[in-house]
Design a protein around this nucleic acid. Structure first.
Ligand SMILES: [Mn+2]
Ligand SMILES: [Mn+2]
Ligand SMILES: [Mn+2]
Ligand SMILES: [Mn+2]
Lengths: 252, 252
DNA sequence: TGACAGACTTAGGTTCGTCTAATATAATTA
DNA sequence: TAATTATATTAGACGAACCTAAGTCTGTCA
């Protein structure tokens, strides 16, 4: 059984750490990496040499460390896997943050791309399907904390059904509401209706499979609405305002 | 970060394999182990020496291999972790069996006891809470296969609510139905109402946290109803008929 | 500008899990 | 029972990922 990803678990953690350090303080130094990963300085030197050889980073002794494009992609991918898993543990299994983070950091290296996608879809479905959603998860919390007792499910279902009908009544009057991605606010979620973005970003979106039907969440909007940070399929993505304007969304 | 479990990932896989081989053909030989784990024969010899030293197995060169109690416990624990994960991937995330098995075999070594418990509770909750269950999971399947389209949720919720009320009407007339565990049939599930089992098995049940509220599933019943194989909290357990008779169940 | 402290690398060693080649033992079969 | 075949072990080596101890580089500051 060949390993699922291009580098070893250890190297993935180094890449992840380098990416995070660079994005936080512009430049990554071996000392920081050693501290974060709780390894000795010589271990870091060794890892750097190995990563440079495989062309994940630019590096020579005493030089500063930068990620190659390949390295950045790999790092982002590990981080995505980590985030999806941690999110699932925290938001669905209601596990405490520290443990969710720790276990995600071990699982991130072994989860398959396919199962990743399923986790993402599952969480989306959970958020969208009116049978489930937040209320249902809190019911799971009750179940866990009370030795397998179910909390009053009937009321909850009635309410759900009520809301669903309400929404439908309204929906019958107005046409499907769509907005441009740049018109949404942090925390808003929606489903992609159309993508009309050219250039590198457009290509990246297609590559990532961001097409009609994909769920998008607004994470952060900078002053003057540029750039806009979004989450799609577990990826964190930063869009220019004009790029975001090319994406049509049906808010959820 | 110290590793979560007592032995390395590799050794856990050896233990698991030894357990399975013994339970299948009574005696484990290095050749079988090598074949299953896809390693060379000398690798097996090395692993056996190492496991013997740590007292997980009884072994000396050319001798036959048996698990110590410690080894058997460890093996069962790995298998439980594996099964719970694989089950979640297959039954909840609707992942195909081969991949579910492979990824479970990697994750089994890094999932924490706590998150294990959550997975188990989550699956139970999914099976019990009338908002979710099988119908809901099949809705998730539809969602995955149709690019994020929701299948007619309203009808499904109405039906669920209907069933729930139906059940309640019936439930109002008759008192809570309870049975003895030995009266159930393979595939039946239920919630433990009372445990009155003495001896080693009783102690084991308590250790495993099998108390009022725990979900139990009947897996297999031998001819004449003895022994009875059950699944509790992810563990597979074999009970004598008289032991099973000491456990009161409310069928679900 | 030159010393020095702190950061980084080199040198060299350990453990783990794997391998191949050679050897020893056990089982089968003529 | 002797020869042959199948299995298992020993010997020795390797790469990955870590470590400690000992040097080397560099930015800072007197
Ligand atoms: Mn994290
Ligand atoms: Mn990690
Ligand atoms: Mn399996
Ligand atoms: Mn495994």
């Amino acid at each position: 059984m060949t390993s699922t990803y291009a580098v070893s678990e250890s190297m993935e953690d180094y890449l992840k750490t380098i990416f995070k350090v660079i994005n936080k303080q512009h430049v990554a130094r071996p000392k920081d990496i050693a501290k974060i990963l709780k390894v000795s300085a010589p271990s870091v030197t060794g890892a750097l040499r190995s990563l440079a050889e495989k062309e994940f980073i630019h590096y020579s002794p005493y030089d500063l460390i930068t990620l190659t494009q390949k390295g950045e992609n790999a790092a982002k991918d590990v981080i995505r896997r980590h985030d999806v898993l941690q999110n699932f543990f925290e938001k669905v299994l209601l596990v405490e943050q520290k443990e969710a983070d720790e276990v995600a950091c071990r699982m991130e290296h072994v989860v398959s791309p396919n199962i990743m996608d399923r986790f993402i879809s599952f969480i989306e479905f959970l958020e969208i399907c009116p049978r489930a959603g937040e209320k249902w998860i809190s019911g799971f919390g009750y179940y866990c904390d009370h030795d397998g007792k179910l909390d009053n499910c009937e009321k909850c279902i009635e309410l759900t059904l009520e809301n669903l009908r309400e929404k439908k009544r309204k929906g019958g009057n107005e046409a499907m509401v769509v907005k441009k991605l740049n018109e949404l606010e942090p925390g808003n979620k929606g489903r992609v209706v159309k993508v009309a973005v050219s250039g590198e970003t457009g290509r990246r979106l297609v590559e990532m499979g961001v097409t009609a039907g994909t769920m998008v969440e607004i994470e952060k909007v900078a002053p003057f609405g540029d750039p806009i940070d979004i989450k799609v399929k577990g990826y964190h993505l930063s869009l220019r305002k004009e790029e975001a304007a090319g994406i049509t969304i049906e808010p959820v």
